[in-house]
Design a protein around this nucleic acid. Sequence first.
DNA 1: TGGTATTTGTCCGTATGTATC
DNA 2: GGATACATACGGACAAATACC
Lengths: 246, 246
Amino acid sequence: MPKSKYDVIYNDLKMKIDTNIYEDGTYLPSENTLIKLYGCSRNTIRRAISHLIMEGYVQPHHGKGVRVIHSSSPNKKYDFTMSGIQGFTDTVTQNGHEVLTRVIVFTDIEVNENLERKTGFPVGTPIYYVQRVRYLDGTAKSVDTNLIRKDIVPGLTKADAEKSLFYYFSNSAGTEVRTIKRKITVEHTTPFDEKYLELEDYNCLAVMTSKCYNENGIQFEYTESRNRPDIFVFNSVLTNSLKPNP
Amino acid sequence: MPKSKYDVIYNDLKMKIDTNIYEDGTYLPSENTLIKLYGCSRNTIRRAISHLIMEGYVQPHHGKGVRVIHSSSPNKKYDFTMSGIQGFTDTVTQNGHEVLTRVIVFTDIEVNENLERKTGFPVGTPIYYVQRVRYLDGTAKSVDTNLIRKDIVPGLTKADAEKSLFYYFSNSAGTEVRTIKRKITVEHTTPFDEKYLELEDYNCLAVMTSKCYNENGIQFEYTESRNRPDIFVFNSVLTNSLKPNP
DNA sequence: TGGTATTTGTCCGTATGTATC
DNA sequence: GGATACATACGGACAAATACC
């Protein structure tokens, strides 16, 4: 039950995105247009929009507009969304843990139909195909498969992959990680997993898939991280205390 | 590297919370005090604070102040935090799925030392101890254990537990769910799990624990939800596009 | 019980900076 | 350079919840 003005506007914009009145990939009307449309101040508009930003519905582009990036593809059953803030890999080292990465595969290929379904990249897109084993404080924590759009993040080397890919994205390349969408599931182990991880008697593991979007709203990376169950932890804080501003 | 004024203030406040200069459970200095302290406008202060709100560091109380609720207890290794927005149980029905809940245990007990470690409730606190099997579209999805502080949410009945606990919290009782902290791990199955869930050949499952805080910053609920691996999905969106306000 | 001060919540207006076209 | 659009920051006004006398 929206009461406040910015909440009404927020819900209206959200509805219009969900119903494709504002289509995925297009820009919202400019703030000035929305001011006239809703008859309110600029602050109120920005507050409503910032709420959408936090939820990953839209993405602001300085000097251009606010782009809809809500790929409303509820193809999976039992699929519910939430929002978040912090990064991941960076956080690990920040918390005083040692990360070591071993690259086991580093090639470049083109996206086929199978990969298109998983990644969301169009067929034929040139990508780096990277597989890595990540050690946390000495023990193999996960086997990760990274698929990175070569046309957007060019010049990636095996040496870069041995460090942090995020570091490469933000420092070396011309891209910037703006939005990440993650999904966590539990899956059966495969012989591939067992080869690199000490899974003991676990017959399944935690799978976290990530999609990274850059400042242009373009998804340029897809990651599947298969984690040792006994090490894997994922935290999340939810709040309805306040909408954006306050 | 903080550039903008509100980001500097945000980082300073966060640091002071992390280093216990502003202690857990206390209130931050009022907005007017912070305005003088940082020499800026009220909007800028509020913007910095709203960022902390989103991350679950603090909680605003209309007419009172902004309370620190960041229980900085990094006792667990490999424990990294993120932030979020939407609820859970409500979302399921919103997405057109059928939820059925069967209560298998409904008693009230007092918190012992073992439960204190898990829940965070002090020893001796009277609680409802509820165990439920939750069916999603006909199949047993999870076995949940809910521990609810009786002194804060009194009058809970078995009939309420058969519906949504969230519904009861927000409608019947005098409490309101403001902040939820969730954690996702993967654990071995127990005979208890196998009794109620059709786990096929999975020997582990997805465990999601939740802690609910009310509008006073008091944690009044603890939940352990043990989920069928093949059904469980958890989504999260992260963004550094923008801090709170706009 | 009532009045007043304090504190947060909502909303508005304006100015300036910066990025894009 | 100029126009457009978002980003940051300031200021003021009033409402609502709370605390205290």
